[in-house]
Design a protein around this nucleic acid. Structure first.
Lengths: 205, 205
DNA sequence: GGATTCCGATACGGTTCCGTTCCGTATCGG
DNA sequence: CCGATACGGAACGGAACCGTATCGGAATCC
């Protein structure tokens, strides 16, 4: 059983001697965390032993890389969410539909993991801050820009409240994907388009 | 099961001899559960020992009443959420504002407890069913009725989708109270009225 | 070849929680 | 008063998990 050649898993800390850390083990650990969260395990109930077992890895291999569960989770979340979807610059309507349509579709896994993270975000100010800065705020800003375009073109009301409008656009989709608050929405056709059309008519100039 | 002569009642009610169960202990246990959930403990991490300690009660006193954590939680939730707020029958606008304004205000505690319950709801079909039947669906139905009134009066579009409209009205408030998805909404004046006005204009006849 | 580090696996003592079973006491019905 | 049951509290054996240590073997550099 010869393992493949491994790349240094943590660039920056230049190790010159000894066996390099296995990037395969590194990936397997992060995947295992997402795997378990996806199954509905909360952050609190997520055990290092379960992670190690799922990844097919010794616990020491985890502790060699991260000081504890918090550090491991942070790296996992950064991996989970990439940069926000960008608008294409067509019409305001088309861009808004595009932005809210990707909620829970670009990455099916992210939407299953999020509910398990929410209790942590509710309780810990630090977790809330990271969640805001890394996940929600960048996405809101993209949507604000599209709305500003609409205001500048005279298409939308000049005194429109960007925060309220952004929330009205994204909240129904977000709540539905994360909690399935109303199961009947599953059967609605073109939900993103319907939402955008009602809001745009509501805030039209 | 030889007590068929007794009236069907909650377990324990049929006893006629000995010291009666303390309703004070009963209440203290339910309060302790809400107390702990309110602090951000998830259902998974909620321990019977912590509940007993918080309630100032022996564990046996809990197990005498409920078979396990699930049964205890079910009764706690039923206590937490009373019947939905009812509309007053004024204008459609006033009723909708009234209905969405109570989100997280009528019972501050409920809104802090909900995020801790969501992972359980995501994972367990049974928990999801109970949550839907006992909490979300009755509240949606109240709001649908108000919208139907608006359609009947010609105030609202006849082909309006009730499910989408209900979701658009309630989701921004619900998401904000449960997750504080956008902290800037804290500083918005009259958020419920703003939401209702945009939606009503969007679905006006 | 030798030194060094990582690998997966296993074991350790310590902690928390489970659900049950005892206490000695308190409080009811008859 | 007596019998029955509930009370708060303490302790039990068992399970899960923590973070660390140690093992023999594998991979890489010097």
């Amino acid at each position: 059983m010869t393992e493949l050649a491994e790349l240094p898993a943590t660039p920056g800390t230049a190790r010159t001697q000894g066996r390099p850390r296995s990037s395969r083990a590194h990936e397997a650990i992060l995947e295992a965390v997402l795997d378990l969260l996806e199954e509905g395990i909360t952050v609190e109930a997520l055990s290092m032993e379960a992670i190690a077992a799922r990844a097919g890895v010794g616990k020491a291999t985890i502790y060699r890389r991260w000081a504890g569960k918090d550090e491991l989770l942070l790296e996992t979340l950064i991996k989970l969410k990439g940069p926000p979807t960008q608008p294409l610059g067509d019409s305001v309507r088309a861009d808004l539909i595009r932005l809210i349509s990707v909620v829970g579709h670009k990455d099916e896994r992210a939407v299953r993991v999020m509910p398990c993270l929410m209790p942590e975000v509710s309780r810990s100010p630090e977790a809330y801050r990271i969640w805001q800065e890394a996940i929600t705020e960048p996405r809101r800003e993209v949507m604000r820009d599209v709305l500003r375009r609409g205001v500048a073109s005279g298409e939308l009301r000049a005194d429109l409240d960007l925060e309220v409008t952004v929330s009205m656009l994204i909240s129904p989709l977000l709540l539905h994907r994360m909690t399935r608050w109303n199961p009947r929405l599953d059967e609605v056709d073109d939900l993103p388009a319907q939402i955008v059309d009602v809001v745009l008519r509501g805030v039209a100039a």
